[in-house]
C-alpha cells in the first residue's frame, strides 16, 4: 500500500485537472488543487536546499577537497534566506541589495562566460564537411550577422531593391520566419506528443519511477 495509495493520489489529482478542461463545474476544485500544488512545489524547493546544505555540511565536517568554499556557500544561503524571510523581498530591502550586487552580477557573468566557450566549441565543431553541417553553419552565420549592426553596414545606400535578398537582414528574417519556424513547429509537435504520452503513463500507473525503489 506504500506505493498503491500514492499512485491513486497522482491519478486523482491529474484526472481532476484534465476533467476540469471539459467540465467547467470542476473549476473550483481544480483551482484549489493548483494552489496546493504551489505549496508542495515550495516544499520541494526546500528539500533541494536542505539537500544542498547537507552535502556541503558533510564536506566541511569531513574536511574534504575544497571544503572552505562550502562554508562560503552555506553563509550565502543562510544570509539570503534569513534576510529575505525576515525583512522581506521588496524593492529597497537588504534582500534587493544582495540581489542587485551579488546574485545578478554573478548570474549574468556566468552566462556571459559561455560566450567564450560557445565560440571555442563552434570553432572546433563547425566544419562544413557534410550538407547538414554546412546548412547549420551557414544559418548560424547569417543569423549572427543579421543580429549585429555590422551585418547591415556593408550594404550601401544605393543597393538595388531587386537584390535585397542578398542582405543578411533579409536572409535572417526568412531563416527565422520560415525555416526556423518550420523546424521548431515540428519539434514542438513531436515533443508535446511525448509529454502527453508520458503524462498518460504516469496517470495510468505505467510509469512509476517517481515513487523510487521499494
Amino acid at each position: 500500500m506504500r506505493r498503491e495509495i500514492p499512485m491513486i493520489v497522482a491519478f486523482v489529482a491529474g484526472v481532476i485537472i484534465i476533467l476540469e478542461f471539459f467540465v467547467p463545474t470542476l473549476r473550483n476544485v481544480a483551482g484549489q488543487l493548483q494552489k496546493w500544488y504551489l505549496v508542495v512545489v515550495a516544499f520541494a524547493i526546500l528539500v533541494g536546499a536542505f539537500n544542498l546544505l547537507r552535502m556541503n555540511y558533510m564536506k566541511v565536517r569531513g574536511r574534504r577537497v575544497d571544503w572552505p568554499y562550502s562554508i562560503v556557500l552555506i553563509v550565502g544561503l543562510f544570509a539570503m534566506t534569513i534576510v529575505g524571510i525576515g525583512w522581506g523581498i521588496g524593492q529597497g530591502t537588504v534582500f534587493d541589495w544582495l540581489f542587485n550586487y551579488l546574485m545578478f552580477p554573478m548570474s549574468s557573468t556566468m552566462f556571459a562566460l559561455l560566450a567564450f566557450f560557445v565560440a571555442s566549441a563552434a570553432y572546433r565543431a563547425f566544419r562544413a564537411r557534410t550538407v547538414d553541417a554546412t546548412l547549420l553553419l551557414v544559418a548560424a552565420v547569417i543569423v549572427m550577422l543579421g543580429q549585429v549592426p555590422i551585418g547591415s553596414i556593408w550594404v550601401p545606400s544605393w543597393w538595388p531593391d531587386s537584390l535585397v535578398f542578398l542582405t543578411p537582414d533579409w536572409l535572417k528574417d526568412r531563416i527565422m520566419n520560415i525555416f526556423n519556424t518550420a523546424g521548431q513547429r515540428a519539434i514542438l509537435i513531436g515533443a508535446s506528443l511525448g509529454v502527453v504520452s508520458t503524462a498518460l503513463r504516469i496517470l495510468l500507473g505505467i510509469e512509476r519511477s517517481y515513487l523510487g525503489e521499494e
Binding site: 499512485m7 493520489v9 489529482a13 488543487l33 508542495v40
Partner: peptide, 10 residues
C-alpha cells in the same frame, strides 16, 4: 511527490 507529479502530469 505523487501529488505534485500527478497534478503536474494533468
Amino acid at each position: 511527490i505523487a501529488f505534485s507529479v500527478g497534478l503536474g502530469a494533468g
